[in-house]
Design a protein around this nucleic acid. Sequence first.
DNA 1: AATACGGGGAA
DNA 2: TTCCCAGTATT
Length: 367
Amino acid sequence: MEEQQRYFSRELLRWYLDNRRDLPWRRQHNAYYTWVSEIMLQQTRVSTVIPYFERFITKFPTPTALADAPEEEVLKAWEGLGYYSRARNLQAGAREVKEKYAGVVPNDKAAVASLKGVGPYTTGAIMSIAFNRSEPAVDGNVMRVLSRYFRLHDDIAKPATRVHIEHIARDLIPDGHASDFNQAIMELGALVCTPKSPACLLCPVMEHCAGRLAGEETLLPIKTKAKPPKPELRYAALIEGTGVNKGKLLMRQRPESGLLARMWEMPHILVPKQMSVAGLPDAEAQDMLRGALHQEGLAVLPMERFMDAEHTFSHIHWQMRVFRCSIAEDAAVPEGYAFIGPNDREEYAFPNLFVRLLDAYFGEQEV
DNA sequence: AATACGGGGAA
DNA sequence: TTCCCAGTATT
């Protein structure tokens, strides 16, 4: 092994012992905590995850507790965290651990890798962090740190690059220190070797960092840009209940799979692209909304514009125009719809966009 | 190999 | 605004 590599592993480990953050999932050694935290941390910042992790572990302290919980409760605990299939996959994994491994996360790479929602990174993270096994755990941090340190010009957006860097990372793990080393390299990426302006002068391995020595620390890593989100115009119906449903809004549950699976939303329609370019007059928009909802067995009458709202997902940009609608007190409500009041909100999981709309509506009612 | 899949924080 | 974050599943 080259001196540049031994130096990296030695100095990084030394640095980590002094700079390790005190995080909830590091307070005690528990493979389930490692698993839950790693799933939550996928594409999600540490500061965002911390409160979710605390609540989640309090509510579901063991794999068996998670396995036995109602699915809606798990989804509600995930509300606002995003990538909601993670919640369902995690619970599916917990059920498998309960059934096949007596509720204990197995110290077995193949078994862990086969759990739902656990890919190459998370497999390596669980095996190394929880069981101190010498497996690489290559995430965005690790690709950035190693791209800079070894001055790799491969496009980290390409799957083949992750595989390449996994081999490099595996060779760097000091015998018997996989857990600390893998956390150390990610910690360095999060605290020092940051994406925009890396703090090279604070870096424990700057002396032999090829990227920095070449003056390329801000050029690396190479990453092709993602394409911009596709714009979509949507018309939504804010349907106020009357009689026994006074003070409540009619909401519906999204399908089992796809975007925001099984979460609750305001009934709405996608406006065909041709008509959405210039937008429609309110009268025509309301007529389109009324007709589309009628097709679904919902007889409502759009009355006036309530508000506009926008939301950007990774790949779609929603521009939503919300119309206040009236509905007859004895009107039929199709399967999957429910009247939800301010006191019922804890029973249902909503995507961020509809949390904002509900806040706007119920906030207005209080005043 | 490309695309679907959320949301928020930092610069 | 832009980037991108302790990625995975599906196609």
